[in-house]
Amino acid sequence: MLEIKNLHAEVEGKKILKGLNLSIQPGEVHAIMGPNGSGKSTLAQVLAGRNEYDVTEGEVIYNGLDLLEMEPESRARSGVFLAFQYPVEIPGVNSTYFLKAAFNEVRKHRGEPELDALDFLSLVKEKMKVLELPQSLLNRPVNEGFSGGEKKRNEIFQMAVLEPKLAILDETDSGLDIDALRLVAEGVNKLKRPDNSQLIITHYQRLLDYIVPDFVHVLYDGKIIKTGGKLLALDLEERGYDWLLEDYRAQCLNGHPSLAGAK
């Protein structure tokens, strides 16, 4: 599904990703954790195609395609979805209109016929129930005046409609109360299929109580410094990051910079 090899990226001359490797197979759920400033959101933005980030080295292969060569819209159409950490408010663009346009772009790309307004609306209403979003949201401008929780749920709702192959959730849990968190997690879990994958970026473990990952990676200083199973997340919750970071620094001093992050 996704193969990230030795990815280096910088923004405004500041190196942020420094040789990141990651391999995701169909059906897998991966979580990336790490302290603030480790490069988590940069990874999400680079994968979605934000051009403020310069990739200086490495490659990303997505289902046999050179992802870094693709425009953001081509990535989205071929099934890459980023749930934004900070969804953008777009005054004047009606939510239904926007989502229908996006949905039909994906359908067109897959060679499927576009849905008309009525069929689309019934599909959308079905998906809304799962996330317990009010239908009035459909008539409002995209994200405008939404509460923090509504914005995050709206991202997952869009994901439900667009049915991506690779969903990247960038700190989707931040700013959510426990009920909203549960709804979002249920929504994400319902979308899990053997042929799609999820990459969950989070600072805290609590989302992973609801979305159980197959792999947990710790990102630090632009590299993955540890990979483990779901228990690693619990470990981190209990012990914090410091013990890992100390191990990592010690390895660096000894000239063995980590297992996963090495070239």
């Binding site: 979605a48 195609g49 934000r50 425009e71 953001p72 819209e73 990535r75 989205a76 159409r77 980023l82 934004f84 969804p87 953008v88 777009i90 663009v93 926007f98 989502l99 346009a101 996006a102 772009e105 994906v106 790309h109 995209v142 869009q158 667009l162």
Partner: peptide, 14 residues
Amino acid sequence: EEAVFYLRARGIGK
């Protein structure tokens, strides 16, 4: 530009 990117990230052309 942020809004343009948001729309593109959902599959809508530039």
